[in-house]
Amino acid sequence: MKRSGPLYTLLAGLLLALFMLSLNATTGTGSSSYGGEAPGAASASPTKGTPKPTGSPSKTASETPPASPSASPSKKPPPNADYAGRTDDDTSAVSISLRDGKAIAYYCDGRDTESWLKGNVEDDGSMRLTGKHGAKLTAKLTGKRVRGTVDADDGRHAFTAAKAVKPSGLYRATTEVRGAKLDGGWIVLPDGSQVGILKRDGEPAKAPRLDPGTGTARVDGDVVTARPVTP
């Protein structure tokens, strides 16, 4: 009976050792379930040291819209104005009316030769006008005057026409009086003098004096009204 004591003690120690081994095994498994990260978590996380992207990606050079070309200054035609003057040989007169890049001119010797011409005016003030029977006028506007030449039935004439202020300028009347067709042209020069031709049924003659204030002239006792000419 006395030998059973140590046996009980040995059994109790074995049971305690088995209990401790079982407890350690249980604690190790639980740490993987509740403590730390689950298997595979490290591979899912971002690589250490790799910066995280912030904001929207910057545009590449190809995505940048091209700069719009600078607008070139637009050219304008010479200002609207009227010009009148005499030929260098003082035998005839020339008047030119400019409107919005267009021109109409009248050459007249006041007796029997005249020509109406028209055409465009370039941005630099140069012009080449044409009329009937091969008439032409080549000139250029410089400052407040037009300098050029005119070719008409009576030859070529150089001229200078200064800027005209009303009532100076170019006038024309087209009407019918007592069954006769009338076509008259007048150049009123800056000094007040006039040069003009009135055709009656196509026959040229010196035009009667025009009243620039009213734009009227008397033809065989009848009043004819002339108007300023513009292109």
Rank of each mutant, 00 (worst) to 15 (best):
T87E: 06
I104M: 12
K118F: 10
K118W: 05
D154F: 04
K136C: 02
E122H: 06
C108I: 03
V177I: 14
P78E: 02
S115W: 01
S95R: 02
A152V: 15
E114M: 04
L137F: 05
V165H: 01
S95T: 14
T175G: 04
V150E: 08
D112E: 01
G179Q: 09
D153M: 14
T160V: 14
L141F: 08
C108E: 01
G125Y: 06
P79A: 15
S115M: 09
G85L: 09
S126N: 02
I104H: 06
K140W: 03
T142Y: 04
A173C: 11
T87H: 08
R172L: 13
V150I: 15
A173M: 10
V150Y: 09
S97K: 00
R86G: 07
E176T: 15
E122A: 14
K144S: 15
P77Y: 13
F159W: 07
D154G: 02
G155W: 12
A161I: 09
A105C: 08
R111V: 13
G148Q: 00
P79H: 11
P77G: 12
A139D: 07
S92W: 12
R111G: 03
A180G: 06
V121Y: 05
R99I: 08
G101E: 02
K136N: 09
G101M: 04
C108P: 00
A93E: 03
Y83K: 03
D88N: 15
K144M: 10
C108L: 00
A162N: 14
D90K: 10
K136E: 11
D90N: 12
N80C: 13
T91I: 05
K118D: 12
H157L: 07
A105V: 06
Y171W: 15
T174Y: 13
G179P: 09
G169N: 03
T113N: 13
N120K: 11
K132S: 12
D154M: 01
K181G: 06
R86A: 09
D82H: 13
D153H: 12
D89M: 08
L141H: 08
K132V: 09
A139W: 01
P79L: 13
N80W: 11
Y107D: 12
P79R: 12
P78L: 10
R86Y: 05
R178H: 07
R145P: 06
A158H: 13
R147N: 07
V150C: 09
